[in-house]
Design a protein around this nucleic acid. Structure first.
Length: 119
DNA sequence: CGCGTGACTTGTA
DNA sequence: TTACAAGCCACGC
């Protein structure tokens, strides 16, 4: 049993684990999917608390600017994050940003042909 | 229980 | 394009 008292953090972890490989999600995106719309900071907080958790693809979570927030906090971890994403096929541009328009995660994918039309 | 801080976001200048 | 301010909630002291 256990599991009854799902903490806010656990919900965030569940969402992060759902991010497919080769895609990235923003803190706000994760927060919204976790039922915490409007509270993106909690996502960052949860990830910080999960620092060291194995199996958690925390590196797939970046900020809305397509940038790695850890830059000013833990440059070392930021480098690791970037390397992991590049290894999964997520490229960074010269300014160190990811094109969320192409590599941003799209949950509930495929709105029929609406999306397949473009491209 | 109160205050400050923060892996954030959005809006305005 | 960058910089500053306000809103938001959980954790640590």
């Amino acid at each position: 049993m256990a599991m009854a008292g799902r903490s806010t953090f656990d919900r965030i972890y569940a969402v992060v684990r759902r991010i497919p490989k080769g895609r990235v999600a923003t803190y706000g995106q994760v927060a919204a999917l976790a039922g915490l719309a409007g509270r993106p900071r909690l996502t960052g907080y949860a990830l910080h608390a999960a620092s060291g958790q194995g199996g958690l693809p925390w590196h797939r979570v970046i900020n809305a600017q397509g940038r790695i927030s850890l830059m000013g906090l833990d440059p070392t971890a930021a480098t690791t994050q970037r390397l992991r994403l590049e290894a999964e096929g997520v490229p960074f541009d010269a300014r160190g940003r990811v094109d969320l328009g192409r590599f941003g995660w799209r949950p509930r994918t495929v709105p029929a042909r609406a999306a397949s039309k473009g491209r």
